[in-house]
Amino acid sequence: MSSKLIITNVETVPGKTIVKHLGMVSGNTVRSKHVGRDLMAGFKNVFGGELRGYTELLNESREEATARMRQQAAAIGANAVVNVRFSTSSVTVGAAELFVYGTAVVVQ
């Protein structure tokens, strides 16, 4: 069910009409990285280049946040989420919050 949920970041689902707005749905996750990753990042800070550990961490976190949003949308009977936005904020030293939100709708 939730895998069939359509997610877009435009205002509508192309080719379909929105028959019902169900309100905002969101998902978040707060993640911290482990010491090993910080050590690696410290090395990379001398040489330059991509911090793969951080890229992966942030990607996983975004996926988790999106999965939570999907669950919420499915639970209230939506079949699509439109106008999705991502936002990031650092909560404390070494941890970041990934937040994703959108509008749950029923489309036909």
């Binding site: 359509i6 997610i7 877009t8 970041n9 435009v10 689902v13 192309p14 080719g15 990042a41 990379k44 800070n45 001398v46 040489f47 330059g48 280049g49 991509e50 911090l51 793969r52 951080y54 890229t55 942030l58 990607n59 975004r62 999705v84 991502f86």
Partner: peptide, 17 residues
Amino acid sequence: AWQPQLVAGSVVVSVDY
């Protein structure tokens, strides 16, 4: 008639010393 799907990309790039 086209099928929509959310796509994303991200990267973390570090400075050098």
